[in-house]
Design a protein around this nucleic acid. Structure first.
Lengths: 150, 150
DNA sequence: GTATATGCAAAAAGTTTGCACAGTA
DNA sequence: TACTGTGCAAACTTTTTGCATATAC
C-alpha cells in the first residue's frame, strides 16, 4: 500500500504537476504537523525540515494544493486561515470557540443534500466543508461556572 | 420592525459592547456590500463611506463581530478569507471553484447531526458552516468543451 | 532538451500595536 | 464621570513578484 505522501504526489502528477522537493516538503509538514496549520506555521515547519526550500515556494504550493483540492483552507470559526490535508472520505470538525480544540465527526449528512443540489441546479460537486462551532464540554462547564459567580 | 443595522447593534449591546460609529460603519459596509468581502474590501468600503474611521478599528471590529458570531469568516474553498454577515436561520453556500460565484442553499441537513453530536459528546453547539464546492453549470460546460479540443 | 518550478531578495500588502484623546453609557 | 473604544502612525508580519538558475520528466 502506497504511503500517504506517495498518494498525494501521485495526485499531483495526475493533475500534470511535477514531484519536487519543495512540494514534498510542504506535504510532509502537513502530514507530520498538527491537523490545522497557518501558512506561517507551514513556512516555519518547512524551514526547519528543509532549509533549502524558500518561503515563496511554500505559498505557491499551498495555493496549488488548495486549488487541486488536496488541501483545504478553513477559518475554524475565527478569522485566522488554517490549512489541513483534505480528508478522503468524510471527516468533519466540531470546533470549540473557546479553546480551539477540534473534534472529528465521522457522520456525514451532506451526501443527500448534494444529490438534491446537483439535480436541481446542475452544479457539478467536487467537495464540501462542514464545521460545527460551539463549546466543548470542558469550556461549556467552566463558562457556566464563571457566569454563576458574576 | 427593527432594521437590520438596529438588530445587529442591539446584539452588540446585549453582549456588553458599545454602539459606536466605527462599528456601525463596518456593519453597514457588510450590509450594503457584496455577500462576501475580504478585510481590505471592508476597509475600503468604510474608508469610502466614513473616512473618519480608522483602518485599525475595522480590523478590531471584524474580529469582535466574528467572535460574537454576528459575522462569519470563510475561505470559500480557496485561500482568501472573506467575511459575511452570519445569517440568522440557515443559509449555506454552493461555491463555484472556477468563477467564484456563490449560490444560496436553503435546505439544512445539519440539525439532525447537531442533535446527535450534542447528545454523544456534550458539545454545546452555537452554529455551523456548510459549504459545497464544485463547478456551476456554466463553468462545468465550458470546462468540458475545452477538454474536447485538447 | 525543454518547460516547469525554484530560490532569492526586494517590494508590496495586510495586520497589529501603543498611546493620547474622544465619546458612550 | 469612568472607562470603553478610537484614530493615528509606526512597526511588524505575511504574502507576492520578477528573474536568473536549477531540475523533473
Amino acid at each position: 500500500m502506497a504511503s500517504l505522501i506517495e498518494q498525494l504526489t501521485e495526485r499531483l502528477r495526475e493533475a500534470g504537476y511535477r514531484n519536487t522537493p519543495a512540494r514534498r516538503a510542504v506535504l510532509e509538514a502537513l502530514i507530520d504537523g498538527p491537523s490545522h496549520m497557518t501558512a506561517p506555521d507551514v513556512v516555519a515547519a518547512v524551514d526547519e525540515s528543509s532549509p533549502s526550500v524558500g518561503r515563496a515556494s511554500v505559498y505557491r504550493t499551498l495555493e496549488l494544493l488548495t486549488r487541486l483540492g488536496l488541501v483545504q483552507a478553513s477559518t475554524l470559526g475565527g478569522t485566522e486561515t488554517t490549512y489541513m490535508l483534505a480528508p478522503s472520505g468524510h471527516h468533519h470538525h466540531a470546533i470549540c470557540l473557546e479553546c480551539r480544540a477540534t473534534l472529528e465527526i465521522d457522520e456525514c449528512v451532506v451526501g443527500e443534500l448534494e444529490g438534491l443540489l446537483c439535480q436541481r441546479t446542475g452544479f457539478e460537486i467536487r467537495g464540501h466543508l462542514l464545521e460545527i462551532y460551539g463549546l466543548c464540554p470542558r469550556c461549556a462547564t467552566s463558562q457556566r461556572n464563571s457566569n454563576q459567580t458574576e
